[in-house]
Nucleic acid binder design. Sequence first.
DNA 1: CATGAATGAGGATTCATTCAT
DNA 2: GATGAATGAATCCTCATTCAT
Lengths: 210, 210, 210, 210
Amino acid sequence: MQAPQTATRRRRRKNARPHEIADAALALFSERGYAATRLEDVAARAGIGKATLYLYFPAKEDLFRAVLRQKLLPNLTEIEAAVAASQEPAPALLRSFARRLLAVLETDLTAIPKLVLGESGNFPAIARMYADEVVARGIALLTGIVERGVARGELRAVDALAAIPSLVGPFLTMALWKHSLGQHTAIRLDPQTVMETHMDILLLGLEPRS
Amino acid sequence: MQAPQTATRRRRRKNARPHEIADAALALFSERGYAATRLEDVAARAGIGKATLYLYFPAKEDLFRAVLRQKLLPNLTEIEAAVAASQEPAPALLRSFARRLLAVLETDLTAIPKLVLGESGNFPAIARMYADEVVARGIALLTGIVERGVARGELRAVDALAAIPSLVGPFLTMALWKHSLGQHTAIRLDPQTVMETHMDILLLGLEPRS
Amino acid sequence: MQAPQTATRRRRRKNARPHEIADAALALFSERGYAATRLEDVAARAGIGKATLYLYFPAKEDLFRAVLRQKLLPNLTEIEAAVAASQEPAPALLRSFARRLLAVLETDLTAIPKLVLGESGNFPAIARMYADEVVARGIALLTGIVERGVARGELRAVDALAAIPSLVGPFLTMALWKHSLGQHTAIRLDPQTVMETHMDILLLGLEPRS
Amino acid sequence: MQAPQTATRRRRRKNARPHEIADAALALFSERGYAATRLEDVAARAGIGKATLYLYFPAKEDLFRAVLRQKLLPNLTEIEAAVAASQEPAPALLRSFARRLLAVLETDLTAIPKLVLGESGNFPAIARMYADEVVARGIALLTGIVERGVARGELRAVDALAAIPSLVGPFLTMALWKHSLGQHTAIRLDPQTVMETHMDILLLGLEPRS
DNA sequence: CATGAATGAGGATTCATTCAT
DNA sequence: GATGAATGAATCCTCATTCAT
């Protein structure tokens, strides 16, 4: 039973590697940007040698791609499922959605938008992937909630697509703030307060009118 | 009459140079990001030789700094003045502010946030400059409008600072969208519609309640 | 009866390994050259793991050396013996020698000259080994035949050493051609015809004159 | 008149650079082979900085290509012209051709065959270029001479194409010898003697027979 | 024995910056 | 003032070789 165990340990190690590397990469990419991040530093942070990276990712760009996919998609899927399962009225649903996003704001994931935005010009394929696999799905999710709410009379009639920036803009703002200017200024924006303020404004602004 | 004329033309040329270079740099920075932009390409786009850049900007970072300062600050100053001079009630003032920003959305300036966000980790000094000279002023401007509106009973009572992301988030979202994912997806967001939707939600959401 | 059998098979396998590896190495070396051949590919072609190579050859250079020794020397020894045993007159002997070389031209061995020539600068020890163990012996063999033929009046008097390139040059040419340019051009040189033409010219050119 | 002069000097330098670099590259390529030659060493030998190479040749392979073209084609063209202009009978023409090749044997050019042979597997495009622009032309030249000689009764009837290896094989042998094994053995082959011996054998072997 | 995993040393290439004209 | 030419520092990536199982 021992030999298998050690073999297992190594295998477990090997299975964990891509995630460890992606974590390290996300941390550094988000700190310095894609171009300014040296793969040697990613390797060091992941606790492996420079060349070992290449056993898992054939090139820097693939690592970038993997970071996005591994980190983001599972979360999104989870949120979609939760929304699909929910029977709450739209305003309550939007509030729970906001609570979820607030939780995500605590994690490293918030660095991803900054990254994708910055590199979309250089990696159109990645931009497309992000647009299709993340943004389009997010938009579908949210317009679905809003349209359902309008149909049920829980929200006043609005152009659901055009309302998306009003919905997510403040979250995006906070995510970017956290990873960039927020680090370099004395101005403090408390996510909790901001989000409550935002949801109040938003839901009052979408309240059905007679 | 010729010699003076060429001298004049040259002087005019010389005075225009920094602006021409900054324009070229902004265009390329916004397309590829700071790191991925080669100074040789900036020079080519500005119609000058590679080395000539160094007569105007001692280093790449200084060019970056100059782009921000030259392009952004004048606009901001102008807006501040307009707000200071205005006697409109807060809701109307916010609407004219939105119209102004919508106009800015048509220009290249919108690439700047993307840039600053992406490079804030590598150039803390620039991040600080941007935070202090642009963001802080913008925040002051907006909290001023909101607080005045609240004081006058034109808006319901809110934490003005915490409301900033709700105010500007959608604009920021649209600016980033325009320069990144918007280029790589079939999803179309019409700035005009988005902004009207946004202002409706925002102002209804901030309406005084009895 | 099973256990022994597998043990035997395995031992047979083990004895065969160095040869299998050398075959694989020769094939790849001759295709890509020494430097451009990856040991991983050699291992794959030999059907073994990358690290297993090192159980048989301590380093890439040793593999190179082994390829030469294993592949070339046995053939040479055999030819030497045949020549020593022969009682034919020189022209007939040269023709049988030519037939032998023509047969060698069909094999992979012809890639070896290309390899040794190309790497002699980087591996002087190998070059010396090849010069001493292959070329010097080949020259001794041939000058022996020629000098004996001259002494017996079967060939006209020539400087035997200086005649060597005339003797082997066309064979070398064909060997190199086969493994390099011949692969990349429509020009076809038929080894059989070339060799007959060559031997005709050579033997007429060495015919005793009154 | 001074300014132009310095400008000229620089331009002269710039025009000479590609040749200086190609010379350095040929020397090192022929010594170590293509793969084992570091561009840094080529640059050092050419007396320039590592990056300066890239102002003249976009990549290592292009440098390789340039070496072949610059060094070989002019010589070949010259020989073709000389042959075309000549009215000598075939045997004499072949002897002058041999003298020319003997002269080429003194130069660095002889390293080129070794290079091309060794790298034909890795650079098919280069192999093709060499086959088409050098070898095919050389073959055409020689078969032309031989066929004319046969037609005029100056040589006995032979398959001209099949005779090419008999003609050039010894030269190729000497060229390769000079740059490889010849450097690593005590065996000395004197080019002059070898070539005279070769031409005697060849021309006697091609003498018309009644 | 056999091998997948891991890695440091090494080399091609790019680019901000300097220099000579 | 303007610039083409030149370059060293920096970074991605490869591969021979070693190690742990």
